[in-house]
Nucleic acid binder design. Structure first.
Lengths: 313, 313
DNA sequence: GACGCTTACGTTCGTCGTAACTATT
DNA sequence: AATAGTTACGACGAACGTAAGCGTC
C-alpha cells in the first residue's frame, strides 16, 4: 500500500469513476492508475469499485469505507505539507479564499488590505462561486477557507464558524415613493417589482421566508448573483432592489436612494468554513481573526479538532 | 513523501529517538531509516529531530506537529487494513483486549464465552496490565480495546465509554467479627488490618476517598493487583479484604465470608477505551455490546468519530 | 573505546509510460 | 466506430542492505 494508490482511488472517485480523466488530472498514464488500483484492491482483499466488464460502474460498500479513509489520509498529508511550509517560512505562502461576490466585494476589502500589509509575502487568491461551489473548493483542497452566508452548514466534513451578522436594505431610484414609506413594510415592497439575489445565494432564503410568512408574493422581475448587477438595474428603474446593507455606500451609489429594511427580515450570518481537522498556517488564523475578531486562534483550533458542535455568535 | 517515511519517524519517536532500535523493530537496516528520515525532513523543509552532532537529542516544534499527524495517518492506514479484513472475511480475524486482572478474571469470562461461541473464527487475545499500560496498548495498536476502571480517562487520543458500575464487599475468615457488623461501617473496617488493591488499580481511588472523607486511616497491611491474591491472604487471616463485589463467589470462595460494602464507597465505573477514529471490525462492536448492552453499534460509532464528549451511564 | 548516526555504493524491486489488445456503448 | 479499461513489456529510479567513516558519550 502506498500514498499514490490512495490518491488514485480518491481521484477516480472524484472524477465520476472515470479512470482516464483521473489519470489526466494526476498527470500520469491511464494504465498506471488502473494497475495501482487493482494492486490496492488485491492487497486489501476487497473490491473498491463495481466493474461492469471493463468499466467502473459504482463504488462497493467496502469501497465507500476505503474512499472515506483515503480522503482523510490525503487531508492529513496536506496538513503535513502545511506544517513544513509554516516552519520553513513563517510569513510567506499562499492563502486561498473561496467566497461569494458580496463578501468579496463589500465585506472583505478592508480585511484583505490589512492582511496584505501585515503579510506581504503571502500570495492571496480569491475564488468566487456560489455557496455550494465555495464549500466544494474547500473540500477538495483548492481553497483554504470558505466565506459565505447560506447553505454552508450541512457539510459534515466542513467546520463552520459564525463571523458576522448582517441584514438588508431597499434601494431605488432617488425619487422613488418606496423611500418615503415610514415605516417601511413588506406590503409596501410587494407593491413594486423587485430585483434581488439569486436563489441559493447570499441570504436569499431569509428574504423568501419573510414574504412567505406574511402571505405576500413579491413580483421578482430579476435576480442576480451580484450586488452590483442588482444596483445597475435598479438605477435603470426596472424595479426596487433588496440588497445586503453592506453593499450600499452613499458616497459611491449616488444614483440610488436607500432605506433600511433590517426590521423586515431575519438577519443572516456570514460564516467561514474550514476543512475539518485541517492544519492551518499561522497567517490563516490571523486572517480569520481579522475578519471576525471574536474567532481567536484557540477557538478556531478547538472547533477544527473537536466534534460537530457549532459555535453561536 | 511516502508512508514508509512516516512509519520511520513514528517508530523512532516511540523508541526514545534511537534510530537503531527503531530500525530493528521495523525489520530493516539502520542506515535506511536514517536516510529516509532525512529525505522526509528535506522534503518538508523542516527538521523533525534536534541533532547533537550525529545523535538525535529531541523533537523540534514542527517535529511534534509532524509526529502527531504521522501517527494519525498511520492509524488510518490501520483502519484501511481493518476494512479489508472485515469485508473479505466478515467473521474471522483477531480481537485483542487489554484489561486488568479483575476484569479478565471476573467480569469478562461469560462475555468471552458467548463471543467465542458466536465468532468461532476470531482469535482472542487477552493482554493484562495496569490501567495505564492497558491504555498504552490501545494507543500503540497492540490492542483493539481497553477495559479498565481507573485512570482510563485523561488520554486525549482515547475514546472511553462507561460500561458497568460496581462496588465493593468486605471478605474475611468465616467466623470473623466484621461479618456480624450490622450495619457495616467504615469505622468498623478501620479497626482491623486491611488487604486490598494496589494504588492506581481497580477503583482503589474510591476506597481511599471514602476513608479520607471520614478522617479514618485504615491499617492497610498488604496490597495486590489481583483479587485472588487478596483472597488468599485474607483466608490466611492476615487481615480483612476489601474486594470488588464481583470477585466473590460463595460457591467457590467457601473458605471466606462476605459482607456487602456498597453503601460505604462510591461506585466505580468500568469503561472501555478505544482509539479515537478507529475503524472497528463488526465483531468488535458485537463484543462491546455483549459486555455493555447499552453500547449499541451506532452509539459507539458516534463516540468514535465525534469530539471529546463523554457519555454518561 | 563503545555506541550510534551518516556516507558511499551496488543490487533489487517497484513504478511508470508506451504499445497492443479487448470490452463496452 | 469510438471510447474506456486491461495486459505486456521495457526503462528508469527509488529503496534497501552492506561496509566503511566519523562524532558523541
Amino acid at each position: 500500500m502506498n500514498l499514490q494508490q490512495l490518491r488514485y482511488v480518491h481521484e477516480v472517485a472524484r472524477h465520476g469513476l472515470n479512470v482516464s480523466d483521473a489519470a489526466e488530472a494526476l498527470f500520469t498514464s491511464q494504465p498506471g492508475v488502473s494497475k495501482q488500483i487493482r494492486l490496492l484492491e488485491s492487497e486489501l482483499g476487497v473490491e473498491i469499485f463495481v466493474r461492469h466488464g471493463k468499466r467502473l460502474a459504482a463504488v462497493t460498500e467496502p469501497g465507500r469505507a476505503v474512499l472515506d479513509i483515503a480522503s482523510r489520509i490525503l487531508g492529513e498529508i496536506d496538513n503535513l505539507q502545511q506544517v513544513g511550509a509554516e516552519f520553513s517560512a513563517e510569513d510567506a505562502g499562499r492563502l486561498s479564499i473561496a467566497t461569494t461576490h458580496t463578501q468579496a466585494r463589500y465585506a472583505l476589502p478592508p480585511v484583505i488590505r490589512d492582511f496584505m500589509r501585515r503579510y506581504p509575502h503571502v500570495r492571496l487568491e480569491l475564488h468566487q462561486g456560489n455557496p455550494k461551489q465555495v464549500c466544494e473548493m474547500v473540500l477538495d483542497g483548492s481553497a483554504d477557507l470558505a466565506i459565505a452566508t447560506e447553505s454552508i452548514a450541512g457539510y459534515e466534513e466542513l467546520v463552520t464558524l459564525p463571523c458576522r451578522q448582517w441584514n438588508r436594505c431597499v434601494v431605488a431610484t432617488p425619487r422613488h415613493p418606496i423611500l418615503r414609506e415610514q415605516p417601511l413594510t413588506l406590503e409596501a415592497i410587494a407593491r413594486y417589482p423587485v430585483i434581488t439575489y439569486d436563489d441559493a445565494f447570499t441570504g436569499r432564503g431569509q428574504i423568501n421566508k419573510a414574504f412567505l410568512g406574511r402571505g405576500l408574493k413579491p413580483r421578482i422581475v430579476l435576480t442576480a448573483i451580484d450586488s452590483d448587477v442588482i444596483k445597475t438595474y435598479v438605477a435603470m428603474d426596472l424595479g426596487i432592489g433588496i440588497l445586503a446593507r453592506m453593499a450600499y455606500d452613499p458616497a459611491v451609489d449616488r444614483g440610488l436612494g436607500m432605506i433600511e429594511a433590517s426590521h423586515l427580515f431575519e438577519s443572516s450570518t456570514t460564516r467561514i468554513g474550514l476543512r475539518r481537522r485541517a492544519w492551518l498556517r499561522g497567517y490563516v488564523y490571523a486572517f480569520i481573526e481579522g475578519f471576525a475578531p471574536h474567532l481567536a486562534r484557540r477557538m478556531v483550533e478547538a472547533a477544527l479538532s473537536g466534534g460537530g458542535e457549532d459555535y453561536q455568535l
